[in-house]
Design a protein around this nucleic acid. Sequence first.
DNA 1: ACAAAAGTGTTACGGCTACACCCATGC
DNA 2: GCATGGGTGTAGCCGTAACACTTTTGT
Lengths: 259, 259
Amino acid sequence: MDQTMNNNLEDALLEDGEAFHPGFSVDCVIFGFHANQLKVLLLKMKHAEAWALPGGFVYKEEDVEAAAGRILQARTGLTQVFLRQFHLFGGPARSQSGLNRMMLNARQLPADERHWFLQRFITLGFYALVDFSRVTPRADAISEACQWVDLKGVPALILDHDLILNKALETLRLQLNHQPIGYNLLPEKFTMPELQKLYETILGKKLDRRNFQRRMLSFGILKRLEERRSGGAHKAPYYYRFDQQQYQQALQDGLPGGW
Amino acid sequence: MDQTMNNNLEDALLEDGEAFHPGFSVDCVIFGFHANQLKVLLLKMKHAEAWALPGGFVYKEEDVEAAAGRILQARTGLTQVFLRQFHLFGGPARSQSGLNRMMLNARQLPADERHWFLQRFITLGFYALVDFSRVTPRADAISEACQWVDLKGVPALILDHDLILNKALETLRLQLNHQPIGYNLLPEKFTMPELQKLYETILGKKLDRRNFQRRMLSFGILKRLEERRSGGAHKAPYYYRFDQQQYQQALQDGLPGGW
DNA sequence: ACAAAAGTGTTACGGCTACACCCATGC
DNA sequence: GCATGGGTGTAGCCGTAACACTTTTGT
């Protein structure tokens, strides 16, 4: 899969990008949760100091959502994850000419002004929620590294990727009010304090233990298991698991509140 | 402005569409409110029975939001209105070949399979909220009519425009919980019952008079004027006006509710 | 034993719901 | 004067916020 992408990009750079939908790309903000930190999967660009969101192009006749899924799978190895488009970034200033020209030069390809790769790109932002422990980050052809970065310490990003990232986070925070989220970011089994930490980290504020628990349970999407988690110090918290049936229902109906 | 669009489309059909960002379009769901009905502005296509959402293409170097604004202005004459992108529709099946081929044929233009106008188009959906009374619908070059249609009686639409319309409505309903809306859909001065009717129509359900009023006023974005509206039968309701200052603030902060 | 984490419960406040009553206007 | 629409007020319910106590576990 990764190879496919590599070849296609190399080929495309030469072949005038005929395989792709023109002037259009997809960028993914992939969120993970680990060690009480909300993290994003970033790529370190070759031939540049800047980092970037995982992204790619859309094949002609390929569904846009499918393209995002393909890119996500290429970077994480995961399939079937929570993935939603949230905004299209189409400012005319977001031509990638500077960076992309460098990439062409690095490959000693002709950097004709009218090369498709130097044209203005419109990009659709997706955000994904994944189980950190199941991800094996893999760099793509134009990157020298792919790794998780704590949201608190995001380095300089190319183009408007910082804007995309911020918008994704904002969208995620709003979504918390409408839809249950934790399922996608946590392992199958997790404790209530873990779930709470996740929410606190996303929202950037502390929540009351008991109120949080009561509210969460009131949604009726959690199933408590047998105690366990004996390893930790202090009292052993229960494990919970999302009730798949109820969870899907809640995703559809939304959470209570509002009209 | 309208003429510009006409000419550009005609030119573009001949000139291989070099002026536009390729494979990309914008469609606008323009909502208005009149006679207790929520309405959408639709175009009746020439050479076809189907109706369509107002849409168009994006010039190279033109901001996507600006393009939507330009299209909106061309159809309604309005500028400075509430306009938000809400979803990108990019299924591969949404090639416009059937319809667009017809349009080319009608103009006796060459319908080469690889004509840019016959390629797959990705389209970004916008929804707009406008003051019905200030709109003068104007058809574009490819339409024989442009008019308001009650949401309850929307005719058959081309392509996936019904899907776009539904998604816009769904988005609007969700937005009601986060942001004050009425400002854009009503005249400067309006009565509380009118505002309520608007909400009821959007949501599709009845609301309690007093609770609605109390809640609305609690947002602190309304200013009551002198009584008036003597014309109608029965007791004269007060006029209200949105406090521009507070309204903008509420748009930023969002409405109470949630975490 | 003690500290820290986690389970469970209780109270008070505020917003929302569901009502009732009065006033104004046109027929 | 009666029907209809519109302004204003109030009691109950429920969810949330704020807070205390007990239980477990490792040191």
